[in-house]
Design a protein around this nucleic acid. Structure first.
Length: 736
DNA sequence: GTCGGCTCAACTTG
DNA sequence: CCAAGTTGAGCCGA
């Protein structure tokens, strides 16, 4: 056990070997067979139907009748004066513990229209109080996914490819790689004839009842949405990388998010163009976004800056704006919210003054739309914005589901000017969204509030952040005994056939430095951008090593600075122990490395079944592949690249790492055929050779409390394979 | 009525 | 703290 523990390959400057004993009962870990429910394991839990549209229950002001698509028979309309309290029966109340998603139990029935079979009349499947029988079938009630036609779809130069059944058409060239995604195509022909009855185009942004289109199939699903977000972020990372290299010190703002967003839009890489009232197909409650542009691309919230998204509707010859979504960023001075109730401030009034009211707000634009939505009773999507823990300068946005507006008023803000206020209440019966974040915040403030907590920090301080050990499913008190070590233990560097030399950079390796040998080895680009985010996939990463004079905070040492997200080892329902994060994780983020003891005599170990079968051996001698959609599409930037997604790679140095006795959090990561994490070999440069490490990165944005899983790959040794029960359509059936 | 062009607001970002 | 920068709404005139 002591073998190889003598010297750490990379003495992380300023750190010391704090590896200490984890004192928990020695219980055998389960074999890692990990069924996963669907293609996007926990990023998109399956509980919420992709199309949900709940009707308005009024109130309707005099002179107005219920209007489509907010129609509900009068007997089901809520009386005007009946303002509900915060729904007490909601499943997402804040408390000491909120079940992490994916939530296993289906939510209470929502007042929703569910997609009926094509030839069947639509069925109203639920009601606000969960009574599934209280609504009768009505030919006037249409199915879910009702889409409100937008002006751009009738404009000649606009993107349109949605056919009558809601399907997207062919993909434009750069998007062809995304064969599994539904995106919009700028080159597509005009919409189907049904959209232009009598040769009339719709009025600008004003939707008549006739123009409301039915969508019979949920063709934009969570996979498409996830795909678009991944493509966007990969593009954004690449633009960051390019801009970093151009002029890393100039104060020029770069806004790679906007540049990437523009390219996405110009190439039709978005899931929808339409504004919708209610849920957006493919976007699930709890989904996270790191840029406003991401929400724009998936149709969740169109404005790139404004907090209120709205659209015009026409009925009974009256045109009215209604709000469809809001972003609550807490930026307005008077905002405050509590659980399922949100007090939202109107927009405007802060002309040229950030966060300060300087004039009265006016009842126009978004404010007017919110006012109308109050009268109409339509649902408004709410997105909660907050600081991103992993990136203090950035923000993270969480889609918190559907709310309704119950009150509005004006009041004098702290600056003495009138501000519109809107009281929004979360619709009951939706899966937990923002409340999970609140729970996590409570846990961070007092770890003992975490239900099922066994150990506050199983690393005993060996990591810069604690890693808690939690079991809230059964009585098992912990995984088998092991010693916690944050890093890989090498006795000496492994010699490769080629000599390796570190760089000579002082301070940090500058992205634009063409003379940095470490950057050269990476193909001319620093592989990371800010916050230790990997830009694109590579067969191997060359990081600065012990012989490089650059500082520990050099960007090219991303995998050497320990944990940056708050992790938790937890007992899964049926897959032994697993790993997940309390914090959201951006795509490309370095998560952790695979620590353990390096097995020096690979040949001997390969014949040693005991070593390989202990479930804790990382076999870096097997082949690995590029994960789909992680790397940007080069054509979008006019770059050429030979993309051979199926090519199999081997690590430059054959290494096996045994983490049975000594290891870190990575030993708890389970297998999935549809992973959210991938690994890469990382070489730390040294004069006499290299140290090879295995580093894990996020494939896509990962919501809090989502299990982190990677593809164990195939060892090529049939008798050592284990059956995989993940259940994905692309499941290989076994792994290991 | 439709379209194109222009201006402007906006709970962004770094 | 501030300015670069984008989308989409709104308006106007052809």
């Amino acid at each position: 056990m002591e073998r190889g523990l003598g010297s750490d390959s990379v003495p992380p400057p300023g750190s010391f070997d704090k590896s200490k004993v984890l004192d928990v009962r020695p219980l055998r870990c389960l074999a890692p067979v990990f069924p996963s429910p669907q293609a996007f394991p926990a990023f998109y839990p399956p509980q919420v139907p992709p199309f949900v549209y709940a009707p308005a229950f009024g109130p309707y002001p005099p002179g107005f009748t219920a209007f489509y698509p907010f129609y509900a028979p009068p007997e089901y309309q809520r009386p005007l004066d009946q303002h509900p309290q915060t729904p007490s029966g909601a499943t997402n109340q804040a408390g000491p513990f909120v079940p992490p998603y994916p939530v296993q139990t289906p939510p209470a029935p929502m007042p929703s229209y569910r997609t009926p079979p094509p030839t069947m009349p639509p069925v109203f499947s639920g009601s606000a109080n969960g009574d599934t029988t209280s609504f009768r079938k009505s030919s006037k009630i249409h199915q879910v996914g009702v889409e409100l036609q937008e002006e751009s779809e009738t404009k000649g130069d606009s993107i349109r490819s949605v056919t009558e059944d809601g399907c997207s058409d062919n993909l434009k060239q750069p998007a062809q790689r995304l064969s599994h995604c539904n995106v919009h195509n700028t080159d597509a022909e005009a919409t189907s004839s049904g959209e232009r009855q009598n040769g009339k185009s719709s009025n600008k942004r004003v939707k008549s009842i006739q123009e409301v289109r039915l969508s019979s199939a949920a063709t934009v699903d969570s996979e498409s949405v996830g795909c678009i977000v991944m493509i966007f972020d990969a593009l954004r990372r690449r633009i960051c990388q390019i801009e970093d290299a151009k002029d890393p010190v100039s104060g020029v703002t770069r806004r790679a998010d906007l540049k990437g967003g523009t390219i996405m839009m110009n190439n039709g890489l978005r899931t929808t163009l339409r504004k919708r009232v209610g849920a957006v197909p493919g976007v699930e409650i709890g989904d996270i976004f790191f840029f406003r542009m991401e929400m724009c691309l998936v149709g969740l919230h169109a404005p790139s800056m404004a907090g209120i998204d709205y659209t015009s509707l026409r009925f009974n010859e009256v045109e009215e704006p209604v709000a469809v979504s809001i972003v609550s960023s807490g930026a307005y001075e008077d905002d405050m919210d509590d659980g399922d109730v949100l007090i939202y401030s109107g927009q405007g009034g802060n002309v040229n003054r950030k966060d300060k009211q300087v004039v009265d707000q006016k009842l126009e634009r978004g404010n007017l739309a919110l006012e109308k939505s109050l009268r109409r009773g339509n649902e408004v999507r709410v997105i909660r914005g907050m600081k991103d823990v992993g990136n203090p300068t950035g923000k993270v946005y969480v889609y918190d589901g559907l709310y309704k507006i119950y009150e509005s008023w004006t009041e004098k803000g702290k600056s003495g000017y009138n501000v519109f206020k809107y009281k929004l209440v979360r619709e009951p019966g939706q899966v937990a969204g923002f409340t999970i974040w609140k729970s996590i915040q409570v846990w961070k403030e007092g770890i003992t509030s975490r239900h099922g907590l066994i150990l506050p920090d199983l690393t005993s301080g060996a990591e810069n952040l604690p890693v808690s050990l939690v079991n809230d499913v059964d009585s098992e008190k912990g995984p088998a005994y092991f010693s916690y070590s944050p890093g890989l233990k090498y006795a000496k560097p492994i010699n490769s056939h080629e000599h390796s030399f570190g760089c000579k950079c002082k301070g940090v390796c500058s992205p634009g430095n063409r003379n940095c040998s470490c950057i050269k080895k990476n193909g001319g680009d620093l592989p990371y951008i800010a916050n230790r985010v990997l830009v694109s996939w590579k067969p191997v990463i060359h990081e600065c090593g012990p012989s490089c004079p650059c500082q520990p905070h050099c960007s090219n040492r991303a995998s050497q600075s320990g944990l940056k997200v708050r992790l938790e080892v937890f007992k899964t329902k049926d897959r032994g122990w697993g790993l997940r994060s309390w914090d959201p994780i951006r795509a490309g983020s370095f998560i952790c490395e695979y620590a353990g003891e390096v097995l020096e005599n690979i040949k001997a170990e390969e014949d040693n079944d005991e070593v390989e079968d202990n479930d804790y051996t990382f076999d870096a001698t097997c082949t690995y592949q590029e994960p789909a959609d992680f790397t940007y599409i080069p054509e979008l930037l006019g770059e050429e690249k030979d993309v051979d997604m199926n090519k199999e790679y081997k690590t430059p140095l054959p290494v096996m790492i045994n983490a049975k006795n000594v290891g870190n959090v990575a030993r708890f990561m389970n297998h999935s055929c549809s992973p959210n994490v991938f690994w890469l070999p990382v070489l730390h440069e040294h004069q006499n050779g290299s140290y090879l490490h295995i580093a894990f990165y996020a494939i896509r944005h990962i919501r809090p409390l989502t299990e982190l899983v990677y593809d164990y790959g195939m060892s090529g040794v049939p008798h050592r394979r284990k059956k995989c029960l993940c259940g994905y359509s692309n499941c290989r059936g076994y792994f290991g």
